[in-house]
Structures are given as C-alpha cells and as structure tokens.
C-alpha cells in the first residue's frame, strides 16, 4: 500500500454513537476446536450499529476463529455470544439462516462458486432467500457495475484477478444489505492501489449504514482510518478506540 495513504477525510458513519444498539456482543468468550487448546481466551467486546472497526493481530492470533464465531460457523466453548440481541448458546440450527442473512462475509480466499458467473455469485444470497430472478436482476447488475465489474457480469470468478474476485466477494456480501459486514484479510491478495480502492468501498458501505468489521494484519490499512482497533494476540483481545 502506498505510503501516507489516509482516508481520514471520509467521515466515520454518523450512525456510530456510543449509546447505539449492540449488534454483536462477546462476554468472556473462550473457543477451542474439539479437544484442542483454547484459541480464544476471555474475549469481550461489542460491535455497535453503524461502527467501523478493525481487528488486527499476527497470523495465528485467532482472528479467523473470532470471525467464525461472529458469522456463526462455530460455537463458543464458553462465555456469552450475542447476535442482534440473541444469545447464540440458546439458538437451534434452524435459527441460524435468518441471522446469517443479516451478516455479510468477505473471505480472504473469496469462496466463490466457480461454476457460476459473477452475476450468479453476487445474486446468491437473494436466490437462496427465495427471491425471483426478475425481482433482483437489475439491482444485482447495478451492484456488479458499482464494484467496477460490469464487463465481467458473465465471467467465471476463476478468470478474474485477485482484486476483481475480492470485489465480487464484497458485492455478494452486501447484495442483501446486511446489517453487519465482516471481512477477513480483504486486501491480502491485492496490490496496494486495489487495497485502497477496496477500503474506500468498505467506508462507503459504512456510510450507508452498514456496520463493518475488517480483520487484517496489514497495519498500513489500519492506519489509513481513524477507526477503533481490536487487537488479538495469543487469543486475548485488547481494544483501542482511537476516535475517543
């Protein structure tokens, strides 16, 4: 990423206020895979509606595991995890889809369906939600165009560059206007210029009202915004609100 790259001139979402609704809340959460060692230890934080937050930490610190808890791919081993006011421990599997539709996820490795076109990949959340193609086709096309891929509408993801695939992943994550957007190393596979463009895209989404959490070990990216930073090290979380 280019030195001195700053986006602080882009105001943080006006919805972000200290008294606003908590979208995700963790209280003394621990997590382990099977009978393995504890990956996350006594993690506590809150993501408030409209906030923009970074999650940093070295590789292996537990960022991806924390994100897995947030997008409900895994259960906490202990502690309390709340999504949109619901305690995850009391949820049945059948309750998850409705909550997941309120969360958009961008993965470092994209997780596109390579046999589908860019348009079909972006439209996937709407299709899964049972909407008719005719009802969303134009909106999806507009979104694909908005992320700069109008000329790749019918391309297969595998034929696109890393940055283009990342934009497809972002478009898919936001197509159903989620309340929370989380991104795992979204700039890990792109050049600095594309990283800046992607970050600008996240900021724009945040200004439109989406709560954003970006997990990254790229400190240049973190320094580009005056947004709160949560740092993970050896499974423990520290919180730094730079705006305060």
């Amino acid at each position: 990423m280019a030195a001195g790259f700053r986006l602080t001139e882009i105001a943080v979402n006006p919805f972000q206020q200290s008294e606003s609704e908590v979208i995700v809340g963790f209280d003394a959460v621990g997590m382990r895979y099977g009978r393995g060692p504890e990956i996350l230890k006594d993690v506590s934080f809150q993501l408030k509606r409209g906030s923009f937050t970074f999650l940093t930490g070295p590789s292996g610190a537990g960022k991806t595991s924390l994100l897995r808890l947030i997008y409900m791919a895994h259960k906490a081993s202990r502690g309390v995890v709340q999504h949109f006011g619901h305690d995850t421990a009391g949820l049945q599997r059948k309750d998850l889809p409705d909550l997941r539709r309120r969360i958009g996820v961008v993965f470092q490795e994209f997780r596109m369906l390579d046999h589908l076109s860019v348009f079909e990949n972006v439209a996937l959340p709407l299709r899964v939600a049972g909407q008719k193609r005719a009802s969303y086709a134009e909106d999806v096309a507009e979104l694909v165009s908005w992320v700069g891929l109008a000329h790749h509408m019918e391309s297969r993801p595998a034929t696109l560059s890393g940055g283009e695939q990342q934009r497809v992943a972002i478009a898919r994550a936001v197509v159903n206007q989620p309340e929370l957007l989380i991104a795992d190393e979204p700039t890990g596979n792109v050049d600095p210029d594309m990283a800046r463009r992607l970050l600008r895209l996240f900021v724009e989404l945040n200004r439109l009202g989406t709560t954003v959490l970006i997990a990254t070990h790229d400190l240049t990216l973190v320094r580009a915004l005056d947004a709160p930073v949560m740092s993970l090290a050896d499974g423990r979380l520290t919180y730094r609100d730079r705006a305060a």
Binding site: H115, A141, V144, A150, H151
Partner: peptide, 21 residues
C-alpha cells in the same frame, strides 16, 4: 468505481445456473 458505472448495466439473460454442478 470505474467507467463501468457510467453505462446502465444490463443483467445477463437466461435462467438460473445449477447450484450443484
């Protein structure tokens, strides 16, 4: 984000592709 934004995008024609290849 690019010049693509200037032209009105048209969704591709045709039906759904199979989700399970």
């Amino acid at each position: 984000m690019s010049e693509d934004e200037k032209s009105p995008p048209a969704p591709p024609s045709g039906g759904h592709a199979r989700l399970l290849p």
